[in-house]
């Protein structure tokens, strides 16, 4: 059984992380920004799992990735609740239009 070198996992994770960062910057929709953040969290998890292959006795990387998934789930629920409140108050989901403190 041939094993894939760890650098390939790291390159794939770096590509997904950079695409997620570009999504979070370019989208003008609060939920679009949230999609990019989810993709970045997944890319970080790929790194942790790829390094955890070489530690089969105490798989610390996989446990860390498990806790990252838990925190991501909590973050998404709270962020969606805040987005719904912002939409109910300002009637928009464009982060550039929610600028009441600047005026």
């Amino acid at each position: 059984m041939t094993t894939i070198p760890v650098e390939h996992y790291l390159i794939v994770a770096a590509a997904l992380f950079c695409i997620g960062l570009a999504i979070a910057i370019t989208k003008k929709h609060l939920i679009g920004i949230l999609l990019g953040i989810e993709l970045m969290l997944n890319a970080v998890n790929i790194n942790l799992v790829a390094f955890s292959r070489h530690d089969p006795e105490r798989i610390g990387g996989q446990l860390f990735a498990l806790f990252v998934i838990v925190v991501a789930a909590a973050e998404v629920t709270v962020a969606l609740a805040i987005i719904l409140r912002v939409y109910g108050h300002f009637r928009t989901v464009d982060p550039d239009k929610v600028n009441e403190l600047k005026k």
Partner: peptide
Amino acid sequence: ALYVLAGADFLAVTQIMVYVGGILVLL
């Protein structure tokens, strides 16, 4: 699928259940 190829079977199932079944529906 990349998790499965890296030998993390439990994490792959957790990923599908939490992300696809929970977070994506919420989004």
